[in-house]
């Protein structure tokens, strides 16, 4: 009888989950790029390593509670026994060893998978600049002289160097199928290196709350063959819209659920202008003196933030 009390709810939990999971896609566990693949490997390794402690804990928990339940008067009862050097050394020691292993893995993986680290490939890298706006993503291709909104396209097996900033509240740039996220912050650049190894359209999202239009601020990351990518560039080049400082100002006005747009990039240094805007004495805040701005720049440089134009 008691078995049913526990088994039935467990079956209900399992059944509901199984039903809800029909056709589910685990973006993080189904990587389409080298970074996401390595990150998944780490996730699985760390989980298994943790199980070395977790499984014994669960087994011991249920065995001990059952064996030493109050009604089982046959079990040994030693109310004054309050310590054992042997056991305590054991459970200070074993976790220490596990954490030592994990610490080494953490150190090497943090360096190996450092988002600022360039990826190697036979193909030359592609530079894409990303600007988080209210509430859309702007992608600038300074070398190809094109730009796009809420869609980013690139060839597979090509290292992509993302330079990321925001002209809006802080955000986070994330393409789960290709690899981890990095914050997008106004007035500074963060870097992210990703590479896709399979063609496809992958969901990209804003992971950090940025205001009312936040939920609709999604983009598609399209990894294609070199020829499809070339075609896409031609389409963008033939776009009637040109992105310059003035059309950018119009684009930066807050708007939600924005459709995909392609631009010709009129000003190759537009990205630098957007980043440096926050570094200049603002016209809106007359009280600013240049000294404060300078010291701020020093601080950012110290934090290894890449500051274009410096």
């Amino acid at each position: 009888m008691k078995i049913f009390i526990i088994a039935i709810p467990l079956l209900v939990v399992g059944g509901l989950l199984a039903y809800a999971l029909q056709g589910a896609h685990f973006a993080i566990l189904d990587p389409k790029g080298i970074i996401a693949d390595k990150e998944r490997g780490l996730l699985i390794f760390t989980t298994l390593l943790s199980l070395v402690v977790v499984v014994p804990v669960f087994v011991m928990l249920f065995v001990i509670v059952w064996r030493y339940r109050a009604t089982n008067t046959k079990a040994i009862y030693s109310p004054e026994w309050d310590g054992s050097r042997f056991f305590e050394t054991l459970w200070w020691g074993i976790p220490c060893l596990i954490i030592l292993v994990l610490a080494i893995v953490t150190w090497t993986s943090s360096h190996q998978l450092d988002p600022t680290r360039s990826l190697t490939s036979t193909h030359p890298p592609l530079k894409i600049q990303v600007v988080a706006l209210q509430w859309k993503w702007l992608f600038l291709y300074p070398d190809q002289q094109v730009a796009s909104v809420n869609t980013v396209e690139f060839p597979i097996n090509t290292p992509i160097e993302f330079d990321i900033t925001a002209d809006a509240p802080m955000n986070s740039f994330w393409i789960p199928s290709l690899g981890g996220q990095i914050y997008a912050m106004p007035g500074m650049t963060t870097k992210l290196h990703l590479m896709a190894d399979t063609s496809g359209t992958y969901a990209g999202s804003s992971a950090n709350l940025s205001g009312t239009g936040f939920s609709g601020m999604r983009f598609s990351a399209i990894a294609t063959s070199a020829s499809d990518y070339a075609n896409w560039l031609i389409r963008a080049h033939s776009s009637s819209q040109v992105l310059t400082s003035s059309s950018y100002t119009a684009l930066a006005v807050p708007s939600a659920d924005v459709a995909v747009r392609l631009y010709r990039l009129g000003e190759p240094t537009l990205y630098d202008t957007i980043v440096m805007k926050y570094m200049m004495p603002s016209t809106a805040t007359s009280s600013t003196d240049t000294k404060a701005v300078n010291s701020d720049m020093d601080m950012d440089t110290n934090m290894n933030m890449n500051m274009p134009g410096m």
Binding site: I28, A36, K38, E39, R40, L42, L43, T46, T47, S50, L51, V54, V57, F58, L61, L102, V105, T106, S109, S110, Q112, L113, P115, S172, W174, P176, G179, G180, Q181, I182, A207, N208
Partner: peptide, 27 residues
């Protein structure tokens, strides 16, 4: 508590590895 906290703790250890955290942060 022991059951939930241990499982939550595993999730915590996972996220303490920065490279894993990049993939699950803010999720």
């Amino acid at each position: 508590f022991v059951v939930t906290f241990t499982l939550g703790g595993v999730a915590g250890v996972l996220m303490s590895v920065p490279a894993i955290d990049y993939q699950v942060h803010n999720s």
